[in-house]
Design a protein around this nucleic acid. Structure first.
Length: 841
DNA sequence: GATGGGCAAGTTTTT
DNA sequence: CTTGCCCATC
């Protein structure tokens, strides 16, 4: 007996409540739960005594409970936004274990992100306790893929200890392949080839299976050839890129049915999160694992997802996978979770109506028992600056009323929108954090450091070796490296070994030779200490002895300081691992670090980054044609693209628990010039009844422009709180976000605009300072900030102290006047600056 | 091998 | 308007 429901094709009417058809929320007909789990013989022998207690079931609504208890056969859980998807997944896993249907290591649970995997493990542990630790197969597609490949590397032509390339390595290798084919690398950028190959790998296409029509793309027909060459080089380097992790798995399973069979037997239950985001390769991989010997007993695969939240089509996700589920897995059950626990009525109705404009959905009608709440607001503003101002004013008000800033988010379509928002947040003094953005492991210094560690462990890693062979500068330039690479290829040996040969032979000039020799000796020495030394200490030793730390210490650019901080952070982070090898494996797979939650902050991020999160108040700026929906989406993917954009809007609105505030600007500054815009079609697709049109309440009717002064409207706020820092409530975001581009930009801007000086000169100066560690002697730049705002403040600094300034670098204070410092900078000469712009050093 | 000027391009992003 | 990359120059 199965709970079968037909996808309701009809578009749901804009309604807030769903007539409680069929069930009474207060009196669940638990006994009607259709699939009574099969009990083992021993359990049946024990009778009722064996019935495990299942308190985790009590907190579930009937649909959720059904999804948790329907253990046998394929199951698709269509979980609308905010309907308790993760709760179902984690309860289901707990239930499987609790019923004795499988032990922790017999359950395969895949997610897309490490974050999701972490959270899931955490929540399972909260139910079943330490047993969750046994879930060896809970992880991302890629992490599980690597794990399997490591066991069977020899079957796919890899040697043990193969490495996983990151994006940098990938591009470097592709560049080499492109050049080796004699193709003009300027006309045909490696980046583009990477995307092309990636799209093939997303569809599990090996070089020989690339469709003819596409094989000839790139560089006048060389696409497929380059792909094959690239794969060949990967094998030579004993390496995989991310795409390979799955493609090679699929190949392994197809070519070695016996291996596949062991995994099919092992995984008694398969669970997949965010199924709407799977690409073809992931789908094929899952389908292979979900095959069973007899068709009578279909695999126990449970996919959870929401077709309405599929927003990654542009990177290979196939919505079709979820739409086709019942055909791919015959006899499947579909359960809809439609009871929303997140948003109030108006918000939900607005989102539902918007998404109903899409065709080709499985169809869900979200409903809530919550109150109608506030209507979604729509505001038209003059330009992006006014938009930012309006949003920040709102947030200020909410804060005054005691709102928690962690419950406020601004979600943008494209990251360039963040600029004006960040500028405004900084000048308003609202603490914020940017989510997404540049990742810790993507920073240059971190990658360099990891490259050193990697080469120490594994000298055959050519790409990492190339990365640091001349960093810091050792006089081993392009010429030397090119010769090295050629020798390595000719002799079919790693570059590291080639380097040793070159040192021994007399090919190199004296200086180059001794430089190379000492680098190699250093690596040998470090390698000799891998087992005898604590890995964290060894890492510090390597960074010191290689001169890498010294390189940044000698660097006088403003960023050097934070780079050194990051290196320290890296070593600190390594403490969590047992040894170097474990750490390296981790970083090649996990490109994110959970940033600490420090204090209350407004969250700023792209709509894509917001999926899965929720906030009381959500601001959705930039609802303009061309931006949202994005022009490029429309151009490249037509109706499909438009529908994905609409889903993105749906995701955005459904992030809001209590307030959703949409805005659009009539003019937006992009690429330096203002362009007028018309409101997004999505605005007019919203249901009248659930929307309030709110006019911008700008004091100058929207026509106002910010003429140079840092903070013309903030005055009242500062009056109320006279103790603010001099520049108008600059609250430096904590260390972690202190160096976001927006913060630096805003700081530079406020500083240079405080007095209408030559902006261009300031910009050039900053640029020079950044690239060369100094600053040109021009007309003295007096950075005064908004001195008037806090004339009474007494600086915490004293003459003689050594300080650091983001723009001017290091200097010594020569005199102090209120909060105004005169500093003699090492590179920039004497400047007057406000104390909040410097920090002690 | 470093440096700075010139120039083209410029959604969304995880593993 | 920025940013990053390539190339010419010292």
């Amino acid at each position: 007996m199965r709970h079968e429901r037909v996808a309701s094709a009809a578009v749901p009417p804009p309604q807030q409540r769903h007539p409680s058809e069929g069930w009474d929320p207060d009196n669940h007909p638990v006994d009607n739960a259709p699939s009574t789990p099969k009990l083992s013989i021993s359990q049946r022998a024990l009778g009722a005594a064996s019935q495990p207690r299942a308190p985790y079931l009590d907190g579930l609504n009937p649909e959720q409970r059904l999804a948790v208890e329907t253990l046998d056969g394929p199951l698709l859980v269509l979980a609308g936004a905010g309907t308790g998807k993760t709760k179902v997944l984690t309860s289901r896993i707990a239930h499987i274990m609790n019923m004795g249907r499988a032990s922790a290591h017999q359950i395969l649970a895949v997610t897309f992100t490490n974050k999701a995997a972490r959270e899931m493990k955490h929540r399972i542990a909260a139910i079943v306790g330490p047993a969750a630790e046994g879930m060896a197969w809970l992880g991302t597609f890629h992490a599980i893929g690597v794990k399997i490949l490591r066991h069977h590397h020899e079957l796919v032509g890899l040697k043990s200890g193969f490495t996983i390339l990151d994006m940098d390595d990938q591009l470097r290798l592709m560049k080499q392949v492109i050049e080796a084919e004699g193709i003009d690398k300027d006309r045909w950028p490696a980046r583009q080839l990477a995307n092309l190959i990636d799209s093939w790998k997303n569809r599990a296409l090996t070089p020989d299976r690339v469709p003819a029509a596409e094989a000839l793309s790139f560089a006048g027909g060389k696409g497929q050839v380059l792909y094959a060459a690239y794969q060949k080089r990967l094998k030579e380097l004993n390496a995989c890129d991310f795409g390979d992790l799955l493609v090679e798995n699929i190949r392994l399973f197809r070519e070695h049915p016996d291996v596949l069979a062991t995994y099919q037997r092992r995984f008694r239950f398969i669970l997949v999160d965010e199924y709407q985001d799977t690409n073809v390769a992931q789908y094929l991989w899952l389908r292979l694992l979900a095959q069973t010997a007899s068709s009578d007993t279909p695999a126990n695969i449970c996919c959870v997802g929401d077709d309405d939240q599929s927003i990654y089509g542009w990177r290979g996700a196939e919505v079709d996978n979820i739409l086709r589920f019942d055909k791919d897995f015959p006899g499947s059950v579909v359960i809809r979770l439609e009871r929303n626990y997140r948003s109030t009525g108006h918000i939900l109705a607005a989102a539902a109506t918007l998404i109903s404009k899409n065709t080709g959905r499985l169809g869900k009608t979200l409903f809530t028992d919550d109150a109608l709440g506030e209507k979604v607001t729509v505001t038209g503003v003059w330009d992006d600056e006014e938009e930012a101002r309006t949003i920040c004013d709102h947030i200020e008000q909410e804060r005054k009323q005691g709102a928690n800033l962690n419950e406020v988010a601004i979600l943008v379509r494209a990251s360039f929108q963040m600029r004006s928002l960040e500028d405004r947040l900084v000048t308003t003094g609202l603490p914020y954090r940017v989510i997404g953005g540049p990742k810790f492991y993507e920073r240059q210094e971190i990658r360099d450091a990891i490259a050193y560690l990697e080469v120490t462990l594994n000298p055959a890693n050519d790409l990492k070796f190339e990365r640091i062979v001349n960093t810091p500068k050792r006089g081993l330039g392009d010429t030397t490296i090119k010769r090295l690479r050629e020798l390595a290829i000719a002799r079919e040996m790693p570059m590291y070994s080639a380097a040793r040969e070159m040192v021994q032979s007399n090919e190199l000039s004296g200086k180059t030779r001794s430089s190379m020799a000492s680098l190699l000796t250093s690596f040998e020495r470090w390698r000799g200490q891998v087992d005898s030394m604590r890995h964290t200490e060894l890492a510090e030793l390597i960074l010191d002895e290689s001169g890498y730390t010294a390189m940044w210490q000698a660097d006088k650019t403003p960023q050097a300081q934070s780079r050194l901080e990051n290196l320290k952070e890296l070593v600190r982070f390594m403490h969590d691992f047992e040894n170097l090898a474990g750490f390296i494996e981790h970083v090649s797979l996990v490109m994110d670090t959970s940033q600490g939650d420090d204090g209350e902050r407004v969250s700023l991020m792209t709509l894509h980054a917001a999926k899965g999160l929720e906030f009381d108040t959500v601001f959705l700026p930039g609802f303009e044609e061309g931006l949202f929906p994005h022009q490029r989406s429309l151009d490249e993917s037509g109706v499909e693209g438009l529908e994905e954009e609409r889903r993105l809007a749906y995701v955005g609105i459904t992030r809001a628990k209590k307030r959703a505030k949409i805005s659009f600007a009539q003019n937006r500054r992009a690429r330096g010039l203002y362009q007028s815009a018309i409101p997004s079609r999505f605005v007019d697709e919203l249901p009248e009844d659930n929307v309030d049109v709110v006019e911008a309440k700008s004091p100058f009717g929207g026509a106002y422009k910010n003429f140079g002064t840092a903070n013309p409207f903030g005055a009242s706020r500062f009056d109320a709180e006279p103790d603010r820092t001099p520049t108008g409530g600059f609250v430096a975001p904590t260390r972690s976000t202190y160096d976001t581009p927006g913060w630096q930009r805003a700081q530079a801007r406020t500083a240079s605009e405080a007095k209408p000086i030559d902006r261009d000169a300031a910009r050039k100066a900053a640029r020079t300072a950044a690239t060369r560690g100094g600053i040109k002697q021009r007309a003295p730049l007096t950075i005064e900030g908004t001195l008037t705002a806090s004339s009474g403040a007494q600086s915490i600094y004293k003459p003689g102290e050594r300080v650091f300034h983001d723009k001017f670098g290091y200097g010594v204070i020569t005199s102090v006047e209120g909060n105004k410092l005169t500093i003699n900078f090492e590179k920039a000469g004497e400047k007057h600056v406000v104390d909040s712009f410097v920090e002690r050093h």
